[in-house]
């Protein structure tokens, strides 16, 4: 396996490999999201209690679970970078942080806009909402640390340690609805075995979820490639690429 994985630790190979993946990810994201969102907004049945406000679910839940998924990915990258000093792992963690922050913000904002009509309040300091807000602050801290040092290795180390310490927050978010009394409802989709949701509502959710996941892949690829170029700016292959693509003013 190491023999197979080894070439991908080379920045130039990774740069071109992600470049080849991008059009596929983009096409999948566009197709899945347009089908999923049209289905969610127009064809999925309204909830018998929540009416049409339930359609917020199709953004809120994918955004919330991706905000945790991206953090999980970032934590694995941070671990690889701290233990094996993989520079590319650092670059990928730096690429994921802003994307995760935006998805966390979306989860919080859509949750707020859903909470107002359903619970009667925009915000409540309960376990699920507060721990998700802490996730946003963790992301912002990681982004700040990545840009706080001129030396990218040092920045990666500092951000990586924060990422790993902060990963304790992930199980807290996940189980907050079971451990504490809260207004937030429990999980409906990811229950092992059978989800407590009708298939008419579940299918558009799967399209939306995979579509958003592909969108994450697309944006992370773009940012990862930018990080690789910025961190390898003195390498000859980057120099060649730059002289081919630079805008000469």
């Amino acid at each position: 396996m190491w023999k197979w994985l080894h070439p991908y630790a080379n920045p130039e190979v990774s740069y071109h490999f992600t470049g080849r993946l991008l059009p596929w990810f983009s096409a999948l994201a566009a197709i899945l999201l347009s089908v999923g969102l049209v289905w969610a907004l127009l064809f999925a049945p309204a909830d018998y209690q929540q009416g049409d406000s339930f359609r917020i679910f199709y953004i809120h839940v994918p955004a919330a679970s991706l905000s945790m998924g991206i953090y999980f990915g970032m934590a694995i990258a941070a671990l690889c970078s701290l233990v094996w000093q993989l520079k590319l792992a650092d670059a990928s963690a730096a690429a994921m942080a802003p994307v995760g922050a935006v998805f966390t913000a979306i989860a919080l904002l859509t949750g707020s806009a859903w909470g107002k009509p359903m619970w009667g309040t925009w915000w409540i300091w309960d376990a699920r909402l507060t721990s998700e807000l802490i996730l946003l602050f963790l992301y912002l801290g990681v982004i700040a640390l990545h840009s706080a040092f001129e030396d990218k290795n040092l920045a990666g180390k500092a951000a990586g340690i924060l990422t790993l310490v902060g990963s304790i927050n992930l199980p807290i978010i996940k189980y907050s609805v079971e451990w504490w009394n809260t207004l937030h409802q429990g999980s409906t989709v990811s229950k092992l075995g059978k989800p407590s949701m009708s298939l008419e509502m579940l299918w558009p959710f799967l399209f939306c979820f995979l579509g958003f996941a592909m969108l994450v892949a697309v944006i992370v690829c773009y940012r990862f490639r930018n990080e690789i170029l910025a961190r390898n700016s003195i390498r000859p292959w980057v120099r060649d690429l730059v002289s081919a693509q630079a805008n000469h003013k």
């Binding site: 907004l41 917020i56 953004i59 809120h60 955004a63 802003p98 994307v99 935006v102 913000a105 979306i106 904002l109 859509t110 806009a113 859903w114 969108l215 697309v218 944006i219 773009y222 940012r223 490639r225 930018n226 170029l229 910025a230 700016s233 980057v238 120099r239 690429l241 730059v242 693509q245 630079a246 805008n247």
Partner: peptide, 27 residues
């Protein structure tokens, strides 16, 4: 909800994409 999410994602997408030319020009 849909508007705010779309706005944030569009900004993130295009700023990430535009980052490429920015890095190239810096180098």
């Amino acid at each position: 909800s849909f508007g705010v999410s779309a706005l944030l994602l569009i900004i993130l997408f295009f700023s990430s994409k535009a980052g490429h030319q920015k890095v190239i020009n810096n180098i």
